[in-house]
Simulated scan of single mutants.
Amino acid sequence: MPSDDLSGQDLPLYSAACQEISCKTERSVPIDFVHIHAVQAICEILIELDVDPESIFEQAGVSTQIFSVTDAISFASLGRLTALAANHSQCAHFGLLVGQRTTLASLGLLGSLMRHSETVGDALRALEMHHDLLNRGAVVELSTDGTVAIVSYAPYEPEAEGIALHCERALAALTIVLRALCGANWSPDEVLLPRLEPPDTTPYSSFFRAPVRFGQEIAALVFPTRLLRRSIKGANPVARKTLERHIQQLEAVIPTDVTDEIRRRLRTTAIRKQINGKQFAQTMAICRRTLSRRLKAKGTTFKLIANETRLGIAKQLLGDTDMSLAQISAALEFSEPAAFTHAFRRWTGTTPSAWRKECRLQ
């Protein structure tokens, strides 16, 4: 590798990437994995709060030796671990604390690619495109509407625990990343969180330095579109091309799964519009019959996965927000609340109201 391809501080990341590519070709990577950096952050925060990590890790079913044997944890396990840590530490904003431990360096090659992107918009689009290198349980999406830009984080694991904590962790991490690219004084115009408002909102307003809206249907940062055009100081186009090439090598050895891909794509459209199997097959450039055959081999169907995805979103909004049934029904594109209630009863055997009440009692 010529010395001018990567900056000096990126060379260690390149070497690590080569080793990672080699390792991933020899071992299976879980489909729903999340990079282990968040687990390290949880351990550190618990120690700082004078809480013994050992028992919490044991309750979560996560080995304390995980750091020496793997670089990934399942999305569900991370959510369970974060929820237990928040409960035992009695820290309602625990996910926020975990996200604040993020750095561009902790994102590995993807963090370096973002730092060497030409503009902030290019960096966020790189994160959107390659987020599955770090997290295969959620999607990041960048969208614009006139003068307003929104970067959102949407979990697609249907029954994962601690979704609200996952979301606040991700938005805190996104804020840290944007401050690394734009300057420490950067703040969003607005923060949207799909969780109940905690008794003390000061940690959120102090960190984000912006209005925080709780009980929302999505997790997102809102900011002016013009930010996307801001140049990133010190970006190296040669390093960027090299990093893109090696990221593509990493992605090539991560196993793909058609059901995982469907859940990912459905999650980005479920709040805005419904998509059927034929439309999805077209986005994958395969025929509907081929898609059905692949799903049948896995013992499932497109309709079943779509229903699981919508049910997961419904449970998240029922459990983690105070949105009304009418609001949730509209968000999930049901014709009316009665149709949503009927579908939820068919999926779960109970009504949305009864499920919400039972969830709040736990």
Results as ranks from 00 to 15, higher is better:
residue 79 G to N: 00
residue 79 G to R: 04
residue 79 G to C: 02
residue 79 G to Y: 00
residue 79 G to S: 05
residue 79 G to M: 02
residue 80 R to I: 08
residue 80 R to H: 09
residue 80 R to E: 04
residue 81 L to V: 10
residue 81 L to M: 06
residue 81 L to K: 07
residue 81 L to D: 13
residue 81 L to H: 08
residue 81 L to P: 10
residue 82 T to A: 10
residue 82 T to N: 06
residue 83 A to Q: 10
residue 84 L to Y: 14
residue 84 L to C: 08
residue 85 A to H: 07
residue 85 A to N: 09
residue 85 A to E: 04
residue 85 A to T: 00
residue 85 A to G: 11
residue 86 A to C: 07
residue 86 A to K: 05
residue 86 A to S: 14
residue 87 N to D: 14
residue 87 N to I: 08
residue 87 N to S: 14
residue 87 N to C: 04
residue 88 H to L: 06
residue 88 H to K: 10
residue 88 H to P: 03
residue 88 H to T: 13
residue 88 H to E: 12
residue 88 H to N: 13
residue 88 H to W: 11
residue 89 S to M: 02
residue 89 S to V: 12
residue 90 Q to V: 13
residue 90 Q to H: 14
residue 90 Q to T: 13
residue 90 Q to I: 10
residue 90 Q to C: 14
residue 91 C to S: 07
residue 92 A to Y: 10
residue 92 A to P: 00
residue 92 A to E: 14
residue 92 A to V: 08
residue 93 H to C: 15
residue 93 H to I: 02
residue 94 F to I: 11
residue 94 F to N: 13
residue 94 F to R: 11
residue 94 F to G: 06
residue 95 G to W: 06
residue 95 G to L: 02
residue 96 L to F: 03
residue 96 L to M: 10
residue 96 L to Y: 09
residue 96 L to R: 03
residue 96 L to Q: 04
residue 96 L to W: 03
residue 97 L to V: 13
residue 97 L to C: 01
residue 97 L to Q: 03
residue 97 L to F: 00
residue 98 V to A: 12
residue 98 V to Y: 05
residue 99 G to T: 13
residue 99 G to Y: 07
residue 99 G to C: 12
residue 99 G to Q: 01
residue 100 Q to C: 08
residue 100 Q to T: 10
residue 100 Q to N: 12
residue 101 R to S: 15
residue 101 R to M: 12
residue 101 R to V: 14
residue 102 T to V: 14
residue 102 T to R: 09
residue 102 T to H: 05
residue 103 T to K: 09
residue 103 T to I: 10
residue 104 L to Y: 05
residue 104 L to F: 07
residue 104 L to T: 06
residue 104 L to E: 05
residue 105 A to S: 01
residue 106 S to K: 10
residue 106 S to G: 00
residue 106 S to R: 06
residue 107 L to M: 08
residue 107 L to D: 07
residue 107 L to Y: 08
residue 107 L to G: 06
residue 107 L to K: 01
residue 107 L to P: 01
residue 108 G to N: 07
residue 108 G to T: 01
residue 108 G to E: 02
residue 108 G to C: 01
residue 108 G to M: 03
residue 109 L to R: 03
residue 109 L to P: 00
residue 109 L to W: 07
residue 109 L to V: 13
residue 109 L to E: 04
residue 109 L to I: 07
residue 109 L to Q: 03
residue 109 L to Y: 07
residue 110 L to C: 02
residue 110 L to I: 12
residue 110 L to D: 00
residue 110 L to H: 00
residue 111 G to H: 02
residue 112 S to I: 12
residue 112 S to Q: 14
residue 112 S to L: 13
residue 112 S to F: 11
residue 112 S to H: 12
residue 112 S to A: 15
